[in-house]
Design a protein around this nucleic acid. Structure first.
Lengths: 115, 115
DNA sequence: CATGTATATACACATATGTGTATATACATG
DNA sequence: CATGTATATACACATATGTGTATATACATG
């Protein structure tokens, strides 16, 4: 029912996020992914199933291999969702003040980087 | 360590996604949110804590109430993450063919709507 | 300070979830 | 068809997580 929830849920796992990042460069066979990850092949296959069910990846069989790749639709959907919140701040100066931001500073990892 | 994972994880729950949607219109006291949700106040408070720790919401005490609101930084971060995948498709025609899309059609909820 | 309101948190519990092991399935090759 | 490779899935298990109940904390009011 909750399409976005399914999307976010699929991306909420570190292993799956790494898998998605790995596919950024293109199609990947399951074995390719297993090599880059530190979990067993069965785990990768299961993560791929979850990603597929969320509509984030597609699968294409080639011989004995199965090549997975990212689906644009999923990312479009995410972008649309985020865009819906963009209006929230458009031409609306933050009225809560910087002082409050300080209080958040401790748990604010906004500038950190990861993939 | 995985900033995005934390973000996605926080948004991966239907209740939290509803809370976020509710705050789209502006600040909300915990009690306001409880009224719109079908879970107990303690549950809402816990969800708010998770959202706060993920950097998605801020809190501002006002009298006995605590007003929660969305943090732009979190949405910027999401947008940046998605944007990183946009290049993946730019000027790169889908080389996998429409036939594969058909196979995905069953589990493809891309056109559905939710909030 | 006694009482009420608003919110957070500790606790217990049922369920969901990620993982490895073992096994099944599918394809390829000789 | 026997064997090997590639992947998916059933199973068991430990851990994470969402929930309600009860309670603590903080503020407001008289």
């Amino acid at each position: 029912m909750e399409t976005h929830t399914a999307l976010f849920h699929a991306l909420a796992d570190p292993a799956r996020l790494r898998i998605v990042a790995a596919m950024k460069s293109g199609e990947c066979a399951v074995g390719d992914l297993v090599e880059r990850m530190d979990i067993h092949q069965s785990g990768v296959s299961r993560h791929l199933r979850i990603l597929a069910e969320a509509g984030i990846v597609r699968m294409r069989p080639e011989g004995q291999k199965r090549l997975y790749s990212l689906r644009k639709e999923a990312f479009d959907q995410l972008e649309t969702w985020v865009a819906g919140y963009r209006r929230h701040w458009e031409a609306r100066l933050d009225r809560f003040g910087a002082a409050l931001e300080h209080r958040q500073a401790t748990s604010d990892n906004s500038t950190k980087e990861s993939s």
